[in-house]
Computed example of a mutant assay.
Amino acid sequence: MNKATNTGNRLLDSLKRVLVRFREAGYGVKFIKNLPKLADYLTDRHVSIIGRFKVFFSIVATLIYFVFSIDIIPEILFGPLGFFDDAFLLIWAIGNINEELEKYKGPQDDGIKSDKKVYKDPNIIDDARFKIRDED
């Protein structure tokens, strides 16, 4: 009995973490707002390989799950309850991807006032000081 309780508690804790990530993603609104950063995030060489793999895996796993007919809770047997696993996977992917994109502040994010590392466009010179002198 104790083993089943521990397993149930771990499962509920995992579900809670997924739902908290989804809430932090603004229930998908922040995810949509951060979506244009995705291409920069995946191609930026300053981003860790683990972060890129996490985002790539989330996208691929979600696409594979929805494209193939493999289902954890089949809708044909359980009716509307079968959509819970689909919703859970989608919520998990949105939370994962948004969490990584929130950490990433790319070239399009200027004027950020936080302690997060900012990757700037190397073709732009910041803090250049110059004077214009009028020669007579």
Rank of each mutant, 00 (worst) to 15 (best):
M1A: 09
N6I: 12
N6H: 10
G8A: 14
G8L: 15
G8F: 15
N9W: 06
L12R: 07
S14A: 06
S14Y: 01
L15Y: 04
R17N: 15
R17L: 12
V18R: 04
R23P: 02
E24R: 12
E24I: 00
A25L: 08
Y27N: 10
G28V: 10
G28P: 10
V29L: 10
V29C: 05
K30E: 13
K30A: 05
K30I: 00
I32M: 13
K33R: 14
K33G: 01
L35I: 00
L35G: 03
K37N: 11
A39N: 13
A39L: 07
L42F: 03
L42Y: 06
T43Y: 02
S48T: 15
I49E: 14
G51P: 04
G51R: 15
R52L: 06
R52D: 01
F53N: 04
F53P: 00
F53S: 05
F53V: 02
K54D: 09
K54S: 07
V55Y: 04
F56G: 09
F56N: 07
F57I: 10
S58F: 07
S58M: 14
S58L: 04
I59R: 03
V60I: 15
V60L: 15
L63Y: 06
L63G: 04
F66S: 00
V67I: 15
F68L: 10
I70H: 12
I73S: 06
P74F: 10
P74W: 11
E75M: 05
E75K: 00
E75C: 07
L77S: 05
G82R: 05
F84T: 13
F84D: 02
D86P: 05
A87C: 09
F88C: 07
I91T: 14
I91F: 13
W92R: 14
W92Y: 04
W92V: 01
A93V: 07
A93H: 03
I94K: 02
G95C: 03
G95A: 06
N96A: 06
I97Y: 10
N98D: 15
N98L: 01
E100C: 12
L101D: 02
L101G: 07
Y104I: 03
G106K: 13
P107G: 11
P107F: 08
Q108I: 10
D109T: 09
D110E: 15
D110H: 12
G111T: 01
I112A: 11
I112Y: 01
K113T: 02
K116A: 11
K116Q: 05
K116R: 08
K117H: 09
V118E: 14
V118C: 02
Y119E: 04
K120A: 11
K120T: 12
K120N: 09
D121P: 02
D121C: 05
P122Q: 05
P122S: 10
N123F: 11
N123H: 03
I124M: 08
I124D: 06
I125W: 02
D126C: 01
D127K: 13
A128W: 04
R129G: 06
R129K: 15
F130L: 11
F130Y: 09
F130Q: 13
I132C: 04
I132Q: 08
R133H: 11
D136I: 06
D136M: 08
D136S: 07
